[in-house]
């Protein structure tokens, strides 16, 4: 590509083409081509074609891929302070979460990856995660006792579910549908669009909107490429990224609404529990954090953000 003036940037992610993140990336590509006068092009590889989220980050570091999108749950292995997002009930509400992500704290965490050769560009909305179960509705944390709940393969996620009284069971996302069907696990937790698109609602008939964690998606770029971009190109890139974020958040809100309507139509009972019952349960998690001064300060700063 160095032969011509155009720069083709390769972006891979793990979501399917109907997902709001993919649509926002398509828009980002169109914007980027437009504002750069065709000098910058985006080539998108959806649906995990080039590897899982962790593998794609490695490809950025290796230098054969330019950009990717991962959940902060995966990002925490590369930027350890992002573990803070795994803490249950960290944000008061959605506005609070956006204030933090779009403010100095969010930017600080995005930049942290640069020492790992990856730089965060923006946060896409991935809503908040809640429990869904097969046979037994969850109205309060005590209902979680003894239930095997699938979690992502992350220490933070395991601790979070165990602190709420469940029995955290790491199982890969791809094997989850049959595992739920066959009863290897009793339930799982995720945001409404994922619950809907994965069709887990065909098996799980109770969805408890306790909204325990907010785990945004992070758009990242390899420093191999980023350091090679001119100031002008960086500006174009950031401009295209920023407008895709606005667009994605709008699409996400619509997708969330649609997902809840659709699963309800399919016979899922949606439970709106008293969230304080759940947040009271996790006080231990926060008192444990006091031992880690850096993390404790970060939590304080987040909680103090208006």
């Amino acid at each position: 590509n160095r032969l011509s003036d155009t720069r083709t940037i390769k972006l891979a992610h793990s979501l399917d083409v109907n997902h709001s993140v993919h649509k926002a990336m398509v828009k980002m590509g169109e914007d980027l081509a437009k504002i750069s006068g065709g000098k910058m092009q985006l080539e998108i590889y959806p649906s995990q074609q080039l590897g899982t989220e962790r593998e794609c980050i490695e490809l950025l570091q290796i230098g054969s891929l330019d950009m990717t999108k991962v959940s902060v749950g995966v990002m925490e292995n590369f930027a350890p302070r992002m573990k803070v997002f795994g803490l249950p009930f960290l944000f008061r509400d959605k506005e609070h979460a956006f204030q933090v992500l779009d403010g100095p704290i969010g930017q600080e965490l995005l930049d942290e990856g640069t020492k790992y050769w990856i730089k965060g560009l923006a946060y896409y909305d991935a809503g908040s995660r809640s429990f869904y179960t097969k046979d037994k509705p969850i109205n309060s944390p005590s209902d979680l006792k003894g239930l095997k709940i699938r979690v992502m393969e992350s220490v933070t996620a395991v601790n979070m579910v165990n602190s709420l009284g469940g029995s955290a069971t790491p199982i890969s996302w791809g094997e989850l549908y049959t595992s739920l069907q066959q009863g290897v696990v009793d339930g799982a937790e995720n945001n409404p669009p994922s619950f809907y698109l994965s069709r887990h609602y065909e098996v799980c008939k109770y969805y408890t909107l306790d909204e325990h964690t907010v785990l945004p998606d992070v758009l990242i770029i390899g420093t191999h490429l980023w350091n090679d971009l001119s100031e002008q190109e960086k500006k174009w890139m950031q401009q295209a990224v920023d407008s895709s974020v606005v667009y994605q958040r709008k699409l996400w809100a619509e997708a969330e609404k649609e997902a809840l309507e659709e699963v309800q139509k399919a016979g899922v009972e949606i439970i709106y529990p008293d969230k304080t019952l759940f947040s009271n349960e996790v006080e231990d998690v926060y008192s444990d954090i006091k031992e880690n001064e850096d993390m404790y300060n970060l939590v304080q700063r987040i909680q103090n953000t208006k």
């Binding site: 962790r54 490695e58 570091q61 290796i62 292995n77 590369f78 790992y116 050769w117 393969e153 992350s154 220490v155 790491p170």
Partner: peptide, 16 residues
């Protein structure tokens, strides 16, 4: 070796 070097210098640990 480059893969080992990258994951080593960048402090990459397995999730679990």
């Amino acid at each position: 070796l480059r893969l080992v070097y990258i994951t080593y210098t960048l402090d990459q640990y397995s999730p679990a």
